[in-house]
Design a protein around this nucleic acid. Structure first.
Lengths: 329, 329
DNA sequence: ATGAAAGCGCTAACAG
DNA sequence: CTGTTAGCGCTTTCAT
């Protein structure tokens, strides 16, 4: 058994009181004599003492913990987001507790509570619901909350996200210029997530205005896209597929490759790419690359400010995307 | 300001003592009267009381926190690993504190200390060094430590990893059968990580035994692989590239695509694929798919056992890989 | 320039 | 069946 060395051990060994050691630890050298300082320093090194964070947190109400809830951790968007958040928080002496909502709203609710139990000082959330009422209790409890990727309605919280509408518009322009007669947006169900709807609405507006056809396929987990995609490729209308996120893009590409559908001869394809695979597939996939690492960094910075100043304007920070023009349209 | 409701508030409101409430919370109903139970239940619901984990941990020495240190979080291997760990731990009521060593050994050392400070009950580590002495203090401090992916020397800790040697051998067999005259292993520097060396050694042995040529390229961050790859593709010897992990595979594929080098006509390519992109690129890349989610699950299970029984055999658990035979060789 | 003492929110003997 | 009491390891008035 390993008896943990406490502040008292250090105090006794150094021949001072707990108070003095505590002061030393927190840099509250008032007029502490240099000898005392030196002695404490030595003893700490000697005993290999490390203050217990739980006790510190309990007393001082500072945990230096930030909760991060992502909707699916096994997703490149999340990985890079976490990388960005982690770097910024780490430098500031904060730790993150990461939770994976696994795309489940109930689980998310549970996790949010668990984070509060851990006395996190703030939460960065990729929300699983668009309904702000799911999160308003956090506001009431005075818990700093910063949204990433997805907004809620009404907009109660600061948000960091991609420039969804402009980037969708730009790529739709490309599609229209290439004389596609039909655009098929493939997305997970729109109703839960504002971002999805935003992207679809932006596409729809332009396509309709240009007098072309637009279709929406809302993909549920049970659904197999193979048959519809094959049919679209065979359609007499010149068709472009628009994947509304990285997972959809990957799924569509897999089908196209498996079915030996030629890009862009048989069908055009583009979309948001969280996976960074678009350069390598087929003729090179024209796609929208999100800066999710940067989104993470910005969100983390906002959080640090929030904590420092005790409040934060409810504003939206837009991180531009990179449009990669390649040869899939 | 939000005055937090404490166990004392509940106790007063319910007209009992803190002890009784504590007993209720921890399921230590001895012969607690049903009325008392019911009253406490009600008050808790009413006040929306949630026990403070820090205080619980401080007193009970149980934090229900597991530290996880990955060498690079923006990597599919890590993402899936974390997914697996998270699922298993979550079900058991544990939280994970995830840290990203960002491939830096000093940072790793720092993180390990920070985790101990947080009173984690155990650590799951993808080690950045092969040298066990970097981690032996954890053993002395009686901190449960489980290694994933990479072993250390000497083998002091339980390990969950892929079947590196057999899978490398199998794929080298394929290369040899296809009459490649030269195999070029592309890896990050071997010296730090046992797994890398294992993979290279396994390849080398078979290639040499078959009387073919083997070469090793150790890729450092500054190094540009384009020129060597182009030269290899132009070589009169029929050459196969073997990427020792997903990032290397991705990098090599990017070069091949950019330089319009044909696969497998100009050069063969295969390797470990952490990114799940091999099906989509070129003619389909023959590759070794690691089950990193399953590795995470197993490591988490081992950790739970370790914590429960206070010890764990220092044994290695091998998770089989899937060899995907496609058309890149 | 330093200490004594109180207490953060909780658990667990021990006592009835 | 329940309460009293003494801490866990730390920070922070208030003294001196």
């Amino acid at each position: 058994m390993k008896k943990n060395v406490t502040i008292l051990d250090v105090a006794k060994q150094a021949g001072v009181s707990k108070t003095t050691v505590s002061r030393y630890l927190n840099g509250h050298f008032g007029n502490m004599s240099s000898e005392t300082k030196e002695r404490i320093r030595q003893v700490i090194a000697e005993l290999n003492y490390r203050p217990n964070k739980q006790a510190q947190a309990l007393k001082s109400k500072r945990s230096y913990l930030i909760g991060v809830v992502v909707s699916d951790i096994s997703n490149m968007y999340s990985s890079l987001l976490l990388k960005g958040i982690g770097e910024v928080l780490g430098e500031a002496g904060y730790q993150m507790i990461i939770m994976d909502a696994a795309s489940s709203l109930e689980q998310e609710h549970d996790l949010l509570n668990k984070l509060t139990d851990q006395s996190v000082e703030g939460i960065i959330l990729q929300a699983s619901s668009r309904d702000a009422s799911h999160y308003s209790h956090l506001k009431q409890a005075n818990m700093p909350l910063i949204l990433v990727d997805r907004d809620v309605e009404p907009s109660l919280f600061p948000l960091v996200t991609s420039d969804n509408i402009p980037s969708t518009q730009k790529i739709i322009e490309v599609i229209l210029q290439k004389n596609y007669e039909q655009v098929v947006v493939v997305s997970e169900p729109l109703k839960d997530i504002v971002t999805r709807e935003l992207r679809y609405a932006a596409a729809e507006e332009l396509v309709v205005a240009a007098g072309r056809k637009i279709k929406l396929i809302e993909k549920t987990p049970e659904m197999d896209l193979t048959e519809p995609v094959v049919r679209l490729a065979a359609s007499p209308l010149k068709t472009a597929l628009f994947a509304s996120n990285g997972r959809m893009l990957m799924e569509l590409l897999t089908i196209l490759v498996n079915e030996k559908i030629r890009i862009p001869e048989d069908i055009g394809i583009t979309g948001f790419d969280d996976w960074n695979l678009s350069a390598l597939v087929g003729p090179g996939i024209t796609s929208i690359e999100q800066q999710s690492k940067q989104i993470g960094e910005e969100a983390a910075k906002m959080m640090l400010d929030y904590i420092q100043y005790g409040s934060c304007p409810v504003e939206t920070k837009i991180i531009p995307t990179n449009i990669q023009l390649r040869h899939s349209l």
